[in-house]
Structure formats: structure tokens, C-alpha cells
Amino acid sequence: MTTTLSPAPPKATAPGTSKEPIKERLAPYAYIAPFFVIFGVFGLVPLLFTFYVSLFDWNPIGDHVFIGLDNFRRLLDDPRFYNAVRNTFSIWLLSTIPELLIALGLAHLLNHVRLKWAVFFRMSMLVPYITSVAATAIVFLQLFDRDYGLLNWLLGQVGIGPIDFVQSTWGSHVLIAVMVAWRWTGYNTLLYLASLQAVPREIYEAAAVDGAGSWAQFRRITIPSLRPVIVFTIVTSTIGGLQIFTEPLLLSQSAPLTCGPVRQCQTLTLFLYEQGFGQFQFGYGAAIGVALFVLVVAFAGLNFFLSTRGRTDK
């Protein structure tokens, strides 16, 4: 994470003395103020207010009554909560691990000086990123459809299936994970590739001369030099992946807010939305938000810790 605050603080152009007119001295604050105002009103205040609302029985058009920690007691007794936690982590694992591994491999393949059509490969991999989540969900639902989907037809040709990717628990998790991974693999590939290109080519050449094959080069050079960006992608995909919402919402047409009749793929954010905006229980919904916050912070921190550990082996 050495890049976070680099380069070193530059020399200032304004002397910052009191001889300057007041307008000039306030200019820097005016330039950064819009961000802090907007983030304050729409980011920080709502976050703090989530904690506050979670202590109430809060009906948006009726009363709100202070009930202390009752929402959290209720949450910890709610099997729907544990179900949502399980689903969220299952989908996160199924999407993130293949996504980052494939991105690593692709970045390694793209990092050839003599590669032809390099621009085409890079651009085509970014196409999923500019496709919206909603459009992605619609097209993958069709491709994975039980009765008319291309995938099940292909599987049928080799005697498998048909698989119901929407109604079954693991099937729906796989389908959502495929949607997520499809959209983000290319983006992560480009991040990895950028880091790889900063590695001096001579290192690879020297390794090749010393008889290191492709796989050895990948393990000994590629992976270690990518460590900071790998940590970054793991942490960001944790923060994003645990808040997954749109894909599960669009999955089930019969019961969108629960992602199916038995909540087989209802994620935490979807559960939050269902309680808050479907059942109008703002207090309970906010309590789910607090739980999600704790999980995201803890899990992102854990992943950061695990992926940075071992840096001291030098």
C-alpha cells in the first residue's frame, strides 16, 4: 500500500503568510469544500444516522419509539438474517476467487511485448464493465434459463441437466457469481496488467535465460510484484461483493425482494431493502445496515491482514 500517499508532499506555491488577502487564504478550503459538504450530507450523516435509527421501532409514516437494542436481539434470533449472511458470503466466494485468479492469468498472458492485437484484447475485456448490472442480469438469466437457455441446451447435448439455476440454492448462487465475475474480471485484469508493466522486462528475460519456464516466472516474478494491487482488489471486491444487490433482485420474477420463494439467494443488502422499503420497518432495516457495516469492516480488515501478511519475509 505504498502508493496511497505517494508522491511526497510537493512544495507549495502559495507562501501562506498573513500578508495574503483573506480571499486567497480561504481559496484552498473553498476548493475542497464541495466534497466534504456532499459526502457529509449524503455519506457520513446517513451512516451515523443508521446507528441511531437502528435503536428505534421506526415507521416512516407513523411513530418512532425508542426500543434500545431490541432490533439487534430480534436480528440475532432471525433465521432470515443468518440465511442472508450465508448467501452473501457464498456468492462472494464463488465470484471473487475465480474472478481474481482468472484476471491474474489473463494479465500474465497480456503482458507479452510481441503480443499481436493487444489493443483488441484489452478493449474487449472492458466491454462487460461498461455493460450495466441490470442488462448483465437480464442476458445471463436468459443464457442460463432452464427451458430455453443456451447453456442448458449445450449441457443437454452431453447428457447433463437441465439445471434450474433460478430455483435451486447453489444454482442461483453460481448464476449470480457468474454475473459478477463476468463484469469485473476484465477490469481487474487491466489493473494487474498495469502493475505488471511496471516490472522491468529484464527480470523476465534474465529468468528466461536462466531456464525459468512460464509457470515459474508467473509464480516467482508476477505474483510477488503484484502484491499491492492484489491486496487492493481483494479489499475492494470484499467491500463491493458483500453489498451485492441488483443481481439477486433481478433473478426471481415471482419474488424479487426475497430472491425466490424460499429466500435461496437473498443477500444482506436485499434483506435490508426488503425490511426497510418492502415492510416499512426502517428501524429493523437500519439494524441490518449496522450488521452489514460490522461485517464489511471486519471482513475487509481480515482480508487486508491475510493478504499483507508474509510481506515481512524479506
Binding site: 446517513p46 444516522f49 426502517f282
Partner: peptide
Amino acid sequence: RNTLFLLVVLTMTVPTQLSIIPQYMI
């Protein structure tokens, strides 16, 4: 300056989707 910039960087790690209920209230 440095403290404020650190604050900006820290806000990147705040998951915002989970506050949609208060955001909607605002």
C-alpha cells in the same frame, strides 16, 4: 491539508449502500 487528504482517502473505505434508509430520509 494532510489530515484532510487522509480523511478523503478514508471515506473511500466507507460502505455507503448500507445507509440507504437514512439517505432516503434525507
